[in-house]
């Protein structure tokens, strides 16, 4: 019974807290620009409204157009549920669950690309092609980061994988994972979530024709994915397993908030990259994950 309650609480935390992050990012951006900006809870209002709206479906689209966002949403939530939260173990934990997490995110990507291709639009096809192509580099980077954690902790299960890294490795890994976070969540400098009519975007362009409840699932799933990457980054870098549970939870929340602020600052202070530079930056992210791996292998400095 306690397992059941624990799982429900954890899922509720993911579902309810995740839409806060985009709100925080937008507030930071508004603050830097000297504007008032939308309220922090804006995404909640949007989701509630979208959930009640009707749906416009392209004449070309199959039922997969509606189902794909739901599958992607479940996959992202499932991946989030696998992640332990600051010493509180995940409800399911087994050797190799970290790979399930990576491949659940891949399932979400497959479904998003599928949904985009349903409409037969040039624009959305372009987004799908970019998404799946850049994700190759991002996935390689994530696996490298996971290898670093696995080599450091000597474990391939998420519950015991987050051992404290030595300082330099932790710093390098933080930068690498942050770059991958920006790419995978379609933030500046890879993508611009603000411009809806720009020829150079990735994620936003894939969801142009979605509306109503499926769009709500896509937006909510995107916020959960952002929080998932932030939590993963925080746990990989901070020695959370060494402090008491309550303290570590507080630290984790603070770290996630800081990541959101950092995303907002990056978004305010830098411009989007030219598209041919995107693979270059992703490769740099991969290298930032590779160096700590080599450091961990060679031994402590």
């Amino acid at each position: 019974m306690s397992v059941f309650i624990d799982t429900s609480l954890r899922l509720l935390a993911w579902l309810i807290l995740a839409p806060l992050l985009p709100g925080v990012i937008n507030k930071v951006k508004a603050w830097v620009a000297g504007r008032q900006g939308p309220p922090v809870l804006q995404l909640y209002y949007d989701l509630a409204r979208l959930w009640r709206k009707g749906v416009v479906i392209s004449t070309l689209a199959s039922p997969g157009f509606i189902i794909a966002p739901a599958v992607a949403w479940v996959a992202v939530i499932g991946a989030a549920a696998l992640l332990p939260l600051a010493g509180a173990d995940a409800p399911v934990s087994f050797d190799g669950d970290v790979l399930l997490l990576v491949y659940l995110l891949a399932l979400a990507r497959f479904c998003t690309a599928w949904g985009a291709m349903e409409t037969g639009s040039a624009f959305e096809g372009m987004g799908a092609a970019r998404e799946v192509s850049y994700a190759i580099l991002a996935e390689v980077g994530i696996i490298t980061a996971i290898l670093t954690l696995a080599v450091q902790s000597g474990s391939i299960s998420l519950s015991s994988m987050f051992e404290p890294l030595p300082g330099p490795s932790a710093a390098l890994l933080a930068v690498g994972l942050f770059i991958i976070l920006l790419a995978e969540n379609c933030r500046v400098p890879f993508d611009d979530p603000n411009t809806h009519l720009e020829l150079t975007m990735i994620h936003e362009v894939m969801v142009l024709d979605h509306s109503g409840p499926p769009l709500a699932m896509i937006l909510h799933g995107a916020s959960v994915k952002l929080m998932l990457f932030a939590v993963f980054l925080a746990q990989a870098v901070l020695p959370l397993s060494e402090v008491p549970l309550v303290m570590s939870l507080a630290l984790l929340a603070l770290a996630v908030l800081l990541v959101a602020v950092a995303v907002g600052l990056v978004e305010s202070l830098t411009a989007r990259l030219a598209f041919r530079r995107v693979p270059l930056l992703l490769t740099i992210g991969f290298l930032f994950c590779l160096f700590p791996l080599l450091l961990t292998w060679m031994g402590e400095i």
Binding site: R52, A70, S121
Partner: peptide, 22 residues
């Protein structure tokens, strides 16, 4: 989830239209 979203979408009402594509 697939079943529920299909039901929800049907309940909210759907309209077929040409691909918007901006």
């Amino acid at each position: 989830a697939a079943f529920l979203i299909l039901r929800k979408v049907r309940a909210n009402g759907t309209r077929r239209a040409m691909t918007w594509d901006c």
